[in-house]
Simulated scan of single mutants.
Amino acid sequence: MSNSFEQISLKHGFMKHNGGVMFRNVSESEYEFKSVINENHLNAAGITHGGYLAALIDAGAGTAAHRSAQNAPCVTISLDLKYIGASKIGDEIIGNVKILKKTKTLVFLFCELKCNDKIITSASGVWKILKIKS
């Protein structure tokens, strides 16, 4: 299992367009991801837009679900977010994901986003593991 961060935003799309996401496996049930806040991530108040933080968690935690499901495709069923603190341009945001439970069809997880060692967003989510028919 590699412990170095790798860029997961390789295909053209929303997250690549918004700066990408770096990701790494920590253990079979723990994962980390990170991103740096750019000017286009800010809201009118000059802090990171909640929609960007939601998208970042969806991408990072979704990748964790995917990896925990032996790389099967996964889609978000629910994502419950709590906005606790703020971040600004230039800040590095680090996401920590813990897989709470995995069944044959679902992944349950918890995620925290931290900036300067302070929690700014927490989330719990459920992902559906898609079975590819052959």
Rank of each mutant, 00 (worst) to 15 (best):
H41P: 09
E112L: 06
G51K: 03
G95Y: 01
S87F: 01
V97S: 10
I47N: 06
Y83A: 04
K98R: 11
F108V: 11
G50F: 02
L53C: 02
L113N: 04
R67Q: 14
G85R: 05
I93W: 03
A44E: 14
I37D: 08
S78T: 15
A45N: 09
N116Y: 00
A44G: 12
A86L: 07
Y52I: 08
K88V: 15
D91L: 00
H49L: 07
E112P: 09
H41M: 06
I93V: 12
G50W: 01
A69C: 13
D80W: 01
L109H: 06
A59V: 15
Y83H: 07
I37T: 11
V36A: 03
V36Q: 10
N96R: 09
V97R: 01
A69W: 05
I37C: 11
L42W: 05
I47R: 01
G85E: 05
A65W: 06
I84S: 02
V107T: 13
N40W: 08
I37E: 08
T63F: 15
A61T: 13
A86F: 03
E92L: 03
K98W: 04
A86W: 00
L42V: 08
F110V: 12
A55V: 08
I93P: 10
D80M: 09
I77N: 15
A86T: 11
L109E: 10
T76C: 12
A54M: 13
F110H: 14
A45M: 08
Y52K: 06
K98G: 06
L56F: 09
Q70D: 15
L81H: 04
N38H: 09
F110T: 14
P73E: 11
G60I: 11
A69G: 13
K101A: 13
S78R: 10
G85M: 03
L53T: 01
T76I: 09
L56G: 05
L42G: 03
G46S: 07
N116A: 09
D91E: 02
S87N: 01
D80N: 15
K104C: 06
T76W: 05
F108R: 10
D91I: 00
L42K: 01
G46N: 07
K102M: 11
S78E: 15
A69P: 14
N38P: 00
L53P: 04
G62L: 10
I77D: 15
L53R: 00
L109S: 13
L56M: 10
K101L: 13
L106M: 10
N43V: 03
E39T: 11
G50R: 06
A86R: 04
I47A: 02
A44V: 13
A59F: 09
I77W: 07
N40R: 08
L81V: 02
A59R: 10
G62I: 12
H41D: 10
N116L: 03
F110I: 13
T76K: 02
R67I: 15
V97L: 04
T103Y: 00
I37Y: 06
S87V: 04
A45V: 01
N40D: 10
K104A: 13
T105V: 11
F108S: 10
G85W: 02
A61Q: 09
I77K: 15
Y52G: 04
A45C: 02
K101W: 07
G85H: 07
D91F: 00
E92W: 00
H49Q: 14
L100E: 14
I47C: 03
T105Q: 13
C74A: 12
L113A: 05
L106H: 01
I99K: 03
C115T: 04
K82M: 12
E92K: 02
F110K: 14
